[in-house]
């Protein structure tokens, strides 16, 4: 009788919106067959920067159960679950650190040399900086930006279309 009254009054233990019912439904989305049977192997295929299956399978029954899924949902913040942590504000210093790398220089140099080649292809003899000079200017972000704008100006001075819309 007491159990019956508890079930009747608590509201959270039965019914289609009981936590267990909700999570059982969600488990069905985790397996290709839709049966919700997530064992250790299935979990490994899904897991990403998360606790091991042994740590997640609290009751040790070899399957991810509704309560265990709830714990995963409750404890992993979608904004930082991958270990990257909250994003740091992007400061000029960080910008400089990120882009004054070898890769950044290579990339900027490739852009400048490509646009130079394009320009000379369309307008042979155009007064454009040499490859060596542009390579040198690619070493710094500010210099390569200025070079990019000057290349655009040359494009425009010859009434050529410049594909990139640049903003200072």
């Amino acid at each position: 009788m007491r159990v019956f009254l508890y079930i009747l009054l608590s509201g959270c233990s039965v019914g289609p919106w009981a936590e267990e019912a909700v999570l059982t439904r969600s488990l069905s989305t985790l397996t290709p067959r839709g049966d919700g049977a997530v064992d250790g192997a299935a979990y490994s295929a899904l897991a990403y920067a998360a606790p091991s299956f042994e740590a997640v399978d609290v009751d040790g029954d070899g399957r991810l159960g509704p309560a265990e899924l709830h714990e995963l949902l409750r404890t992993q913040d979608p904004l930082s679950f991958d270990g990257l942590g909250p994003r740091r504000p992007f400061t000029p210093k960080r910008w400089s650190q990120n882009f004054n790398t070898d890769q950044g220089v290579r990339e900027r140099r490739a852009v400048l040399l490509f646009i130079r080649a394009e320009l000379l292809n369309q307008k042979p003899g155009a007064a454009v900086a040499s490859e060596a000079e542009l390579s040198q200017r690619a070493l710094s972000v500010e210099d390569s930006d200025r070079a990019l704008f000057s290349l655009r100006d040359i494009y425009l001075s010859h009434n050529l279309r410049f594909a990139l819309e640049l903003t200072p």
Binding site: G11, W17, A18, V22, S26, H70
Partner: peptide, 18 residues
């Protein structure tokens, strides 16, 4: 599916509180 799971938990909370 992730959003659906959290929607379900929200509904569960609403149900439990009447």
């Amino acid at each position: 599916s992730y959003g659906d799971a959290w929607f379900g938990l929200l509904m569960s909370g609403l149900s439990a509180e009447g």
